[in-house]
């Protein structure tokens, strides 16, 4: 927790419009250092759009984003990375022709990590990638490419990590491992915003979730309580089936 207990990330009234479609329609929530917040909701409810805006891929059309007390809405990705915000991608996006080690080295060289002791080998080994360090990233399977995405994000020394469907497609052992890893990261003080469809995984690692539908939050609280909320149930099970 930051000393003054003010949240690390405050999102307020975020709006994003694609043509006539309102992908985000006044989304608001906040996140504290060391906390893991789950962002759940049906497809198209705006989860990934939210992450894309916070990580600088899109500029918001309205609302504000404050990180460590300063406004970061609309900054380009590299400045957000320098500020301490980083992310993984739903479909991993490593630098395919570069080696695994180079993938991470670049992020260390350009990420302006405040922790100067970050070491490529240690990072790779903690994510099970050390054995592949000198292979081109293109030769990794998709689960390992996801780990490489995470390694690259961590190499910049983020204080806010946005995790977009990291668990999808992993086997149970890998899931177990990654859940433990994310919890470790939170314990070290990193705030995590996790978008995920696997509810078991969400329940295992998060303290709190925000349920989204049609671009806004409809519930905030623990996962267990979420399914006592009629609106959430309706969104997830579909109106007519729930009735």
């Amino acid at each position: 927790m930051s000393p003054d207990h003010s949240p690390l990330l405050i999102i307020d009234g975020l709006v994003k419009q694609f043509g006539g479609f309102r992908a985000l329609d006044g989304l608001s929530f906040s996140l504290a250092a060391g906390e893991i917040l789950g962002l759940v909701g049906p497809n198209g409810s705006g989860k990934t759009t939210c992450i894309n805006i916070v990580s600088g891929l899109y500029t918001p059309d309205g609302g504000s984003i404050h990180f460590e007390g300063r406004s970061v809405a609309g900054l380009p990705s590299h400045r957000l990375a320098h500020a301490g915000i980083n992310r993984t991608f739903q479909i991993p996006r490593p630098f395919l022709t570069l080696t695994v080690r180079e993938n991470v080295d670049i992020a260390i060289a350009y990420g302006r990590n405040r922790d100067t002791r970050t070491d490529t080998d240690a990072l790779l080994s903690s994510l099970g990638l050390l054995a592949f360090a000198d292979q081109p990233a293109a030769e990794l399977n998709s689960a390992r490419q996801k780990m490489l995405d995470l390694a690259r994000a961590l190499a910049t020394g983020p204080r806010l990590l946005l995790v977009d469907e990291l668990a999808a497609g992993l086997n149970p052992a890998e899931l177990e491992h990654i859940a433990a890893k994310l919890k470790d990261l939170a314990c070290s003080g990193i705030a995590l915003l996790v978008v995920e469809h696997l509810m078991g995984f969400i329940g295992q690692i998060t303290d709190r979730i925000v349920v989204m539908n049609a671009g806004k939050e409809i519930f905030e609280g623990s996962l267990a309580n979420a399914f006592t909320n009629s609106q959430v149930v309706e969104v997830f099970l579909g109106g007519e089936d729930a009735a």
């Binding site: 891929l57 990705s77 590299h78 992310r87 630098f95 022709t97 993938n103 670049i106 350009y110 690259r152």
Partner: peptide
Amino acid sequence: SRFGMALQAIREDPISAGMAGINVV
């Protein structure tokens, strides 16, 4: 150099390059 490596990273994936802290533009 790391500059050359950064350029190759941009070639491979400009979005990831931005997240790695590279000023792509």
